[in-house]
């Protein structure tokens, strides 16, 4: 039950959506783009989020794309996580997605909604960070296509009025060996203590992490240590962990110290699994 009213718009094109945003913004209605909407509904209910107008972008065809085009995979921001899992066009994304919330909730949660969420886990971004995917962003100044690693810094860096339309991923990244491990406070439900996604491109291992800090990230420095072949696996992971910045979460899911303990073992599993495939 949301304790306030808002206007609801469902544009059918990107330009309509953007135009609408500009108008509603100028009218002081503090508009938000609405895709799966689960966060707007749940945070709205507890007064953490407020808006006078939502712009539902699910009616925009570009946001619903889920297909290969000229060799690359295009995924629309309004594809639901369950649809993505069922089509399974990007196995690492499927693996990561399946650990988000629960199955029924994922029939509503969308890819773009998860990546652009207020809630800081945003686990669906991890595979794209690893795959050096590109994002297509639409906004008042038209479209822009950017590498996600350029525009995702803790959150997707969107200008006012912009929204995520699609993510583009190259096939070699999609086919590369990969793994996703989510570790929780207890058993198999709940938010992550840490979620680590790993991808092996040629001989290079890439890792991206959610849950450790109040944002998901991929660290080139950590990867540098992980891939420096002069040391043992354990030493490489120790060095990589040494590079985690000071912003480790200490919250109801777990303490910072425990998170680092869990991360160490999880990294060990990720690296040994991915390196095992070389052997």
């Amino acid at each position: 039950m949301i304790p306030f009213d808002f206007e609801y718009y469902r544009p059918e094109s990107i330009s309509e959506a953007v135009q609408l945003f500009i108008e509603l913004d100028q009218a002081g209605k503090n508009p938000v783009y609405f895709s799966g909407g689960t966060e707007i509904i749940t945070l709205g209910r507890i007064n953490v989020l407020y808006t006078n107008a939502v712009i539902d972008i699910k009616g925009i065809p570009e946001c619903q794309v889920m297909d290969y085009h000229e060799g690359n995979l295009y995924l629309g921001s309004c594809c639901t996580l369950v649809d993505i899992e069922e089509k399974n066009l990007f196995p690492l994304l499927t693996a990561t997605s399946k650990e988000v919330a629960d199955h029924t909730a994922r029939t509503k949660i969308t890819l773009g909604g998860n990546i652009c969420a207020n809630l800081f886990y945003r686990e669906a971004v991890l595979p794209f960070l690893l795959a050096d995917s590109q994002v297509i962003i639409a906004g008042p100044n038209g479209y822009r296509t950017e590498y996600i690693n350029q525009v995702f810094n803790q959150t997707l860096q969107l200008e006012r009025g912009e929204f995520l339309v699609q993510l583009i991923t190259e096939p070699d990244k999609i086919e590369a060996p990969s793994i996703n491990i989510k570790r929780r406070r207890q058993w198999t439900t709940g938010y992550p203590l840490v979620t680590v996604a790993g991808l092996k491109l040629g001989e290079e291992i890439r890792v991206a992490i959610s849950g450790l800090c109040p944002y998901p990230f991929r660290s080139q420095k950590m990867e540098y240590y992980i891939n420096s072949q002069d040391f043992s696996q354990r030493d490489r992971i120790e060095k990589a962990l040494g590079d985690v910045d000071g912003n480790v979460l200490n919250d109801t899911e777990g303490s910072d110290k425990y998170r680092l303990f869990i991360l160490r073992n999880t990294m060990l599993d990720i690296v040994s699994t991915l390196e095992g495939e070389r052997a």
Binding site: G36, I41, T42, K108
Partner: peptide, 27 residues
Amino acid sequence: CLNGDCGACTVMIDGKPMKSCLMLGVE
């Protein structure tokens, strides 16, 4: 829970399970 956590409000939308507390009527 009105929060998408418990599933007691599950209905089917176009054949798929849906937590009806996570969907606006206008959708």
